[in-house]
């Protein structure tokens, strides 16, 4: 899970998380890493290999998000969880 999607509002995150879970994607909500975005308090970790397909799904569904990021720190953190 080295990918992070950032959003502008927590409403967008909650909607996206529910959608991805329903469609079988592994997700993890994390405190929004400020080094990649100053926006909402919560961001969504995902499997970075699935970036293109998730992005396509979001665009098809007109989901609002800020950006998709490669965030290797997530791997380091996940070892500690």
């Amino acid at each position: 899970m080295e990918g992070v999607i950032t959003f502008f509002s927590s409403q967008q995150v909650m909607k996206a998380e529910k959608f991805l879970k329903k469609n079988g994607y592994k997700t993890l909500l994390i405190p929004g890493p400020r080094e990649i975005s100053p926006n909402c308090g919560v961001a969504l970790c995902f499997d970075f290999k699935k970036k293109d397909e998730i992005k396509k799904l979001f665009d098809e569904k007109n989901f609002v998000y800020e950006d998709f990021h490669y965030y290797p720190e997530a791997k380091k953190i996940s070892k500690w969880l």
Binding site: I30, R34, P38, E73, I77
Partner: peptide
Amino acid sequence: LSPSAAGLILDKKYSIMCRIGL
């Protein structure tokens, strides 16, 4: 650790709720 990484570990591993960020 960045504040967000620390906040995540404190919550998930140790059940400590705090607020990180601005």
